[in-house]
Structures are given as C-alpha cells and as structure tokens.
Design a protein around this nucleic acid. Structure first.
Lengths: 325, 325
DNA sequence: CCTTGATATGTAACCGGTTACACATTAAGA
DNA sequence: TCTTAATGTGTAACCGGTTACATATCAAGG
C-alpha cells in the first residue's frame, strides 16, 4: 500500500500539501491540488488509519458491548448500530460478555488501548464498577447503567400496561405472567406495568431467563401450578414462544383458550404457529438513536446527559382474539 | 492513560527496557524487571495498541464480513468467531454487506487501512473481484469464494441425501423441496444431494431467498401447485419454519400428513410448533475452525490452502415420524 | 592478563500520518 | 512605495510504541 511520502514525491509536493488536500485544510493552490489528486488516483492511495489514529487519538471505531449476539434480540440492534456507524465512517467492534464482569473488564481495556471513540453498552449489572470511572463517550441501550450515562430504552411500563389492557379487553379474566431476570431494570418495568393493570385478575406468575430452555421450564411450571388461565404476558418474545410451544404440546388452543402476548417484536414472533401477538419496541430505531447520540457525544455536539424513552406499540398477530366491539 | 515514557521515568529505566519486559524480549535484569512491573502496576499502564500497530503493521483485529447479522444463521457463527478471536487476543470488526458489492468494497478499504490482520468472509457472488487481488489472510465460511482461498463448509450434498433418505425411510412417497438462492454454491449442493436420492419420488420443487417473507410466499405456491405431498426438505431452517407455519394454517397435520426437514440446526428450530427436525451443520464448530485456521494463516503457521468439509447430522425433533423398524 | 561472549541498558531511528511554524510570494490598502 | 494580510508550501516535531545499534560490564577460558 502506498504511503503519503510516495504520493508527495509522485506529485512533486511535500507531505504537508498532500495532507492538506486530503483533509481540505489550510491553503492549497488549484495546481497542487490537481497534481495530488492525480497522484492519489494513480497510486490507488488510501491513508493509513492507524497512523492517523496515533496522532489524533481517535480511531473511528466504536465498541459494542452486548451479553450475547446469539440472543435473537441483539442482532437487529447490532445491525442498526453498524448501519448508522458505517454511514458516518465508523466501524464497530463486537464484544460478547455473557454478562461476566471479568470478560467485560478485559474488553474494556482492549477497547481503550485501541482508542475506540465511544461505547454502546447493552449489558449491565445493577452496580458495575467498570464503567463508572471510564472516561469515554458511551450510551446505554435497552439497559440503564447509572444516572449520568445516556440511555435509550423503550417504555416497558406502558408496554406492560398495554399487554394487560389488551388481554382484559379481549375477554381474558385469569391472567398470568412470566417475568424476566430480576437484575434488568428495564425488563422489570414491564412486569410492574402489567401487574398494576392486571390487578386481582392476576392468578399466577413466575420468572425466567431469556434462554428458550429456561423459558420452557418456566412455562411448564406455570401450566402445572396455575392452570387454568386464559391470558399470559411474557417478558419477551423468546419466553412467549416457549409458552406457545408448551400450550400446543398440551393441546391448549391459542387464542381460543389461551391468549398470549410477548414483548420485543423480533422476527421470531412471525415464525411461530400461530404467529405471536406482541408489544413491539422499535428495535432498529433504538439502535439508530443510540448510535446517533453516541456520535454527537463523540463530536461534542451536546454533552448534556439525556434519557430517551421510546413508545411501544401493540402488534396483533394471531395469539390474541379479535377486538370485541 | 499513562505512556511508556512515564513508566520508564517512574521505574528509572529507559523506554527500551520497559518495552523489553512487556514483550519478554532481550535481556533484562531481575532488578529492572521488578521496578518496571511495579511502575506498570502503580500507573495502571496498558500499552497503546495503535502505536504498536503502526510499527508492527498488525492490529490484532480481524474483519468479519457477512451479508446480514439479522439472518438467524449468522449470530452463532459470529459468536464462535468472536470467542476464538478473543481467546487469542484479537477483536473482531463486524461488517454487514447485504451482498452489495459496493458496500463490500467500501468495507474492504476501511479494513485494509486500519490494518486488520485477516478476514472471515461469509458472503459472495460467484465472481467477486474484490477479493481476488486482496493480499490479506482470509478464510471463507459457509461459502466458496474461489479456489486458493481457504474454506470451511458443511457437507451439503450429504445433508441433502440424508434428508431424502430420512423422509423415504419414514414412509414418505411424494417428496418436494424448496431450494435456496441460486448463486450460493454451498446451498445448491443440498438440493443436488436431495434430488439425487429422491429420484422419481420428487413431485415438486421451488426456490426462495432466506427471508421468512419470501419463504412463506414460496411455501404457499408449493402447497397451491404441488399438493398433495407428504415429505418436504427445505434448504434452511427459516424456510422450513415458513413451511411449517403454512401447513398449520392449512390444517395439515405435521408429521402425520406431512413430514418436514430443515437444514442448519439454528435455535429457531427448537422454538417452532412442533419443533423442527433438521440436518444440523456444526455451526459453532465451523466458526471456531475458520477462526483458528485464519489465526494460523496470520501467524504463517501453514500457508497451504485447504478446504474443510464438515459432516452434518440428523436431529430428529417432531416434524418427522418415528423410525420404522 | 587478555580475549570473548553473554548479559544489561540506553539512544535514536522508524512506522505514516498531522500540524505548528517558518518562510516566500502576491495582492490590497494607505 | 510601503505596510499588511492573505495565500501557498516545505521542514520538522509529534503521537507512543519497537528495535537496531552502540556501549558497558562481567565472568569464563586460554
């Protein structure tokens, strides 16, 4: 690969002039500019980003820290982030932490020493010392790290209420719920909203992680102990899919005997039988906003911490009944 | 962040000595070593990877080029790659190209100018000029780029035969198939294997992309035109899920009336109702092997091009009948 | 005692960009 | 015509590491 020196020699100017035309900075004569552009084209030159990074202390890299890209909620987020980053000339470094503090810490130093310009974090323990001392632009996505760090989240509380409302309106009278992991504040809000509206119609509740296996186990327990019920809200779509599968296995008709609502709006919901009714959070949009916000932070456009709460909507597919008039 | 100079001053040695103890190279007295280690610990020093990259022309970064991480086959691959890379001190840069040559080209220069050490490619057009001139270690994963470039793929041909065999053995007599996109050689092999064994039992066949929407459309067409049939092999699990959903919608009992086999072994297959029987390729293993191979290439351990063909297995869940004795 | 090789350490060049600064030329304004 | 500011360009320092090379000390062998 050609270097700036070779370009300079080829164009009969100094490296400073080459740098100036590339960065459109300082004064350059029309003549010199053309010569440099010609040389760049002829040598197929592209500036070495590593060298630039070293001086500028900025790499045009952003770190994306998530628990596990294998969890079907995250790829869409990653996609949005990558799209926006790329449009602005940034690349993203993928980090799966499995929510392990130690892995996270290792990544954090790796990312810092490679001078990433910012971080998007979709992982947290309620108290994570790793981030608190970190002096790097960052935004939390779908998680809340701590006050003072920007966050983009969906309105889980309203989502939970909407789920209960919908179930009740469609004639359900005995509601149940499978909550998500206890340490995720954003997920807890869904449960709170649901419980509030469900009131004394709530006849059973359990808890599960977001893996399908665990969700299946939780579903079985719920069916074993709380049956009969005719409406269920799952803390996310994976859990809802497990509920659905277990219902089918038990020959419970959905939605006639049991109505099911999930949360997230991932593609998986389209693929179940019947397709899943769910509370959709605008996943791609959330990724987009988080990234744009991060880029603003990096370019110091706005340093006032913000929390962005996005509205959710009901997507009626076929695990709920038609609306009663 | 501290620099090597500060560490040197703090330990009362030169930067060269500091560098030597960090890299365990050259001669260093026990005394100096201890002083340096103490200084490193006290200043919480970690070497600047950008500076190191500039001199070494190696960044410990690998580029991962895939069509779309949102396609449920890829996250598991990405996860495996990231795991292995990380264990060896490498990070991965995620690139979604949507199979667009132009996007790919843009990424390629970005990746080159940031001096990534290697590439894993899971995307291709049968003839992609971008890679042919590229002088960078790379391995193709689940795709074949061209002879001379290492590839890790699963045995689609055997997989197709296995699917047909299984269907036939379980009493199916009228087989159909939904093939994948025509330009993917590895996917075509599945079809070839299936068709060969199915022989004159094959009563219908169509083609689809790997998006659920398209797959649903293809399924509907197949049901409209080729019904009745009692065994179907889909080129991947997403297509199989679409077939399943359409079958349920048409009140066709699975597996009693129609047996379905997919290909891939992604988690989604577990979540359908009933759970999907499928030909599983060892996805994580493939990602692992590709990455290990790439790292070998980077470290010049072995430069003889190789193609690794991994065996597939049948995972019997509930869309096929029990084996007849 | 002298030579030699192993051990130990520091100085400075280098990687490939960016930019402060010095210097030269030219045009405009007084 | 003289001053001043705008324009144009090159040299060299700098970013933070790595390493070639020079230099120094010391122990072993002849």
């Amino acid at each position: 690969m050609a270097t700036i020196k070779q370009v300079a020699k080829h164009a009969n100017v100094s490296v400073a002039t080459v740098s100036r035309v590339m960065n459109k900075s300082g004064y350059v004569s029309e003549e010199a500019k053309e010569a440099v552009e010609k040389a760049i084209a002829e040598l197929n030159y592209a500036p070495n980003r590593v060298a630039r990074s070293l001086y500028k202390k900025s790499s045009n890299l952003i770190g994306l820290i998530m628990p596990d890209i294998t969890n079907p909620f995250f790829p869409q987020l990653a996609r949005a982030i990558e799209d926006v980053a790329n449009q602005h000339g940034y690349q993203v470094v993928l980090c799966n932490t499995d929510e392990q503090l130690e892995k996270e810490q290792t990544y954090l130093v790796a990312l810092q020493t490679m001078h990433v310009d910012g971080l998007i974090i979709t992982t947290n323990h309620s108290h994570n010392p790793n981030y608190e001392t970190l002096d790097l632009p960052m935004v939390a996505l779908d998680r809340i790290v701590k006050a003072g760090i920007d966050a983009v989240i969906s309105d889980g509380y309203e989502g939970g209420k909407l789920a209960a409302d919908t179930l009740l309106q469609r004639g359900a009278t005995r509601l149940t719920h499978i909550a998500g992991p206890d340490h995720l504040k954003t997920v807890k809000r869904r449960t709170e909203g649901f419980v509030e509206v469900a009131g004394d119609k709530l006849v059973g509740m359990t808890e599960s992680t977001f893996t399908f296996k665990d969700a299946l186990k939780a579903s079985q327990e719920l069916f074993d102990h709380a049956w009969p019920f005719d409406g269920i809200f799952a803390a996310n779509d994976v859990i809802a899919a497990a509920v659905l599968q277990e219902a089918v296995r038990r020959n419970i008709r959905v939605p006639e005997e049991l109505q099911v609502i999930g949360y997230d709006g991932i593609e998986l919901g389209e693929m179940t039988s019947p397709p899943l009714t769910t509370i959709v959070q605008p996943i791609y949009e959330m990724g987009r906003m988080a990234t744009e916000r991060l880029l603003d932070l990096i370019e110091k456009k706005d340093t006032q911490p913000k929390e962005m709460l996005l509205p959710v909507t009901l997507l009626e597919r076929q695990t709920t009944k038609r609306k009663e008039k």
